[in-house]
């Protein structure tokens, strides 16, 4: 029997790691929802965020948490560039061309990083890495707790941006009716730059957060991209906030199931949950029926 306190611990740590999955998934969902493009390289932009943080810390001693804006801005700029140079050209192309293009991005970023940084696992040792909080029987590592709150902060900021700014409303308008957006004087092309930039930037913040408590590696994007895909489908395709919740659900599922079965199977459990949900509600947990 597994004690209740173990389960409680697993739930909490699942929520914490899940909040990072949420960010990676949100970025993917945003790009998907606005442009109908599936970005296979999403996890690799996340990896870039992790490495921005790693190098800022290693070379300049910048605290990983302070590098959150840096990580966002660097990948945002790369995202805008990617949109202008690559994605824009395949937006109206057949899906196969889009998949090929973003898959090519994946290869270039992933193995470019590997060539540049070496195929090694790297770690950031922050001074507060081993600070542990205890609430009753639940114990929490400080970096993971901080990661959760930063992730939540990013999600809330993004929500406020989408709801209250002219650009946010315009982004949502573009995702719902591109033709009407043109007629409202919205610069659709520019909205796409912003969408891709923010989309990869948010995922990169996930990378930064992960780097504070897990080892990073140029190929780490593969695993997170897979999770992000589950998150997005689970959350109802382009639904950005559905993605946030489902990221957390997947984190919890993973970490609770690891109590009962071999930890190496925990991703399989996430996929099983995914398949179960899709069988019951093909539009995802928070998806709308129309589309």
């Amino acid at each position: 029997m597994v004690g209740l306190d173990y389960v409680a611990n697993a739930v909490v740590s699942g929520i914490l790691i899940g909040s990072v999955y949420s960010l990676v998934g949100m970025g993917l969902a945003l790009i998907w929802g606005i442009m109908d493009v599936i970005n296979f390289a999403q996890g690799d932009y996340m990896m870039l965020g992790a490495f921005v943080t790693y190098w800022a810390f290693t070379l300049a001693g910048v605290d990983p948490l302070l590098s959150v804006p840096l990580s966002f801005l660097v990948t945002f700029a790369l995202g805008v560039l990617t949109q202008r140079v690559v994605i824009e050209r395949v937006l109206d192309a057949p899906m196969v061309s889009q998949i090929t293009a973003t898959f090519a991005l994946l290869l270039m970023i992933r193995y470019g990083a590997e060539a540049a940084f070496g195929p090694y696992t790297k770690r950031i040792y922050v001074p507060y890495a081993d600070v542990i909080f205890r609430f009753g029987t639940i114990s929490l590592q400080l970096p993971r707790l901080v990661a959760f709150f930063v992730s939540l902060g990013v999600a809330v900021a993004f929500y406020v941006f989408l709801k209250t700014t002219y650009t946010g409303v315009a982004l949502r308008a573009v995702s719902q009716n591109r033709m009407a957006a043109y007629l409202m004087g919205i610069n659709v092309r520019k909205m796409y730059w912003i969408a891709f930039g923010i989309g990869v930037g948010i995922s990169a913040v996930g990378g930064t957060l992960v780097a504070t408590f897990l080892p990073i590696h140029p190929e780490m994007g593969g695993f997170y991209a897979l999770i992000a895909f589950i998150v997005v489908v689970f959350g109802g395709f382009g639904s950005v906030f559905g993605a946030y919740i489902s990221g957390i659900i997947i984190g919890v599922t993973e970490s609770v199931s690891a109590l009962f079965i071999s930890p190496s199977l925990k991703d399989v459990v996430a996929f099983l949950l995914f398949i179960a949900i899709i069988l019951v509600k093909p539009t995802g947990l928070f998806g709308t029926e129309q589309r």
Partner: peptide
């Protein structure tokens, strides 16, 4: 050709871009 999942007010704001 409205933005169906935006509110009335948001539809109007989308036109104020």
């Amino acid at each position: 050709q409205l933005f169906p999942r935006l509110t009335v007010m948001e539809n109007l704001r989308a036109a104020a871009y």
